[in-house]
Design a protein around this nucleic acid. Sequence first.
DNA 1: TCCCGCAACTATACCGGTTTAGTACCCCCC
DNA 2: GGGGGGTACTAAACCGGTATAGTTGCGGGA
Lengths: 343, 343
Amino acid sequence: MGRPTIADIAERVGVSKGAVSFALNGRPGIAESTRARILQVAKEMNWRPHSAARALGGARADAAGLVIARPASTLGVEPFFAQLLSGLQAGLSARSVALHLMIVEDAAAEIEVYRDWASAHRVDGFIVVDLKVRDPRVEVLEELGVPAVVLGGPGRHGALSSVWADDREAMLSVADYLAALGHRRIAHVAGLPEFRHTQRRMRALRDSSRRLGLADTVSVTTDFSDAEGAAATRTLLSRPRRPTAIVYDSDVMALAGLGVAGEMGVRVPGELSIVAFDDSVLTRIAHPSITALSRDTVAYGRTLAEVMLELIDDPGRRRDVRTATPRLTVRESTAPPGSWQED
Amino acid sequence: MGRPTIADIAERVGVSKGAVSFALNGRPGIAESTRARILQVAKEMNWRPHSAARALGGARADAAGLVIARPASTLGVEPFFAQLLSGLQAGLSARSVALHLMIVEDAAAEIEVYRDWASAHRVDGFIVVDLKVRDPRVEVLEELGVPAVVLGGPGRHGALSSVWADDREAMLSVADYLAALGHRRIAHVAGLPEFRHTQRRMRALRDSSRRLGLADTVSVTTDFSDAEGAAATRTLLSRPRRPTAIVYDSDVMALAGLGVAGEMGVRVPGELSIVAFDDSVLTRIAHPSITALSRDTVAYGRTLAEVMLELIDDPGRRRDVRTATPRLTVRESTAPPGSWQED
DNA sequence: TCCCGCAACTATACCGGTTTAGTACCCCCC
DNA sequence: GGGGGGTACTAAACCGGTATAGTTGCGGGA
């Protein structure tokens, strides 16, 4: 015999399928003694629910969906993403909710997967990352009527819930700090231009520039890879009036930039200050160690999980959770410009 | 009306449910003209299969299961794991197979999840990582009769398939290289002692030591974290006759070790050579850059996916795929001992 | 004493597909 | 013109649970 079903249990105990179902789900209408007998036999036979059968009846899938449209290669590089994933998973696992994951080529394929999984009841909700400017996914998810949490915000994600950190505030604090050190030419090696948070950081730097009366602030967009981060740094440092400080949109790019500075003979922090968005083991163990905007990424993922679980319980809700603004952790890579201290 | 079912299509076209099912699955016994009409209507109504209903009938789940028993925090740190995951996903996605992921507390919980998912037909097979010495999971998976691919090998995974790289060979090549440079005291900062690959690397170094007549080779086990990697390095470098070369079981620990060397005033590679298992952006952009055993981790993941897909197609099979042995990529962190060159 | 009401069940429909047994019909051929 | 065989379908069972309407038996109140 294959795996036992509730019908097998019912036969063995001598009751009906319905009684077994009621007993196993702790619903009233079954005598305590009968319930105990059923549970006993179920345990003996090593019975386990068949989630597909339950799902057919409209029950939970006990899974959250995460679809990512990125080249697989860039995924592996970023500690941020891996940490987020592990926090997310940890949060979901506490309630035995699995993560249904898929990497696809582009946004169109991503939307296709949303439709598939939603109509197949494969997941109870979606987690949306890499929110873009005028993101078509938002509309689709609203139409599908499936719970969804957007990572990033605030705003522009319609009726969907979101979890976000204040990128703008973080960038302003970096600009203030660098300006206070005396920097006038600040560059920004940003991520993908179509991401909302990239735009927000760029705008924040522009605004700071105006407010603080800085000379040349410039943002260069990249694909987040260490290669493009290095290339952008090379370009910036080759300018006639090169920047005295560079802010990177990821720790990986900051580390790559640090390498380029070394290769070009530009001293850090003597001639160039470096700040990284996102803190990780990379920034801590670099030499010199890198000043970074740190946040607890694992906790960020856990918050995401929390909101997702709430939404699954109560699909009508909409929540916007703002997590702690990343705080500047000052290390060795920042100093007043032109300070020729030994590194 | 909710989402359309094949019954809705059948009604609209004026045929039976069975005919629609046959048409949609491209099975013979339906006239071409009828099939075309059915497909047309299905498309119009935006029909999508309900995977739970299919699964009930015993069909594929189109998902592979990956359960990891590790603290979430260590997961986020390692580029190796993230890259493996992205390669795996990329390989699976090509055939629209999703990854069902769950992080659990311990091995017992992991086994529980195997039983659950297997009996619920939630996944078509499992991917097993972190193979341990006398791993109880192997037996359970064999008993469940579900396809499974073990990462790591060879041997000791019973009837299960595996994908592995030759850790032993790799460690031997490192020892040979360091000995050729003139090193006599080689230390090894290893990973978790219960992992098979950790054991294999430790044994390989011991064997090399005997074969090459080295003085003090020693392996210290850690939990793979940068903190323990740093601590182990500190201990090793504080010994009266400290090692002239250290091999680390991960790139993260190697980088942490490099930091400790700097902090203790030990020059790399002048006074200490450093080699890392697993190559990544970390080893490339460190200063000095770190000599590493590189392999294409993303490709490794893709191979894993390939074997998994084969097993899903033909559950009776058993495959043992040996992937390319990691090759030594020499960078700036290795040199003959006592060479006081500038770094 | 009779009826009501409730607890403790049973029997059965249902979810949305797949699959099998059965049937109507046509063509071919002796 | 009747039998054989294949094609193109239909009807219904089935997968393993959940939900619901119905049934039985018992205790209590009028």
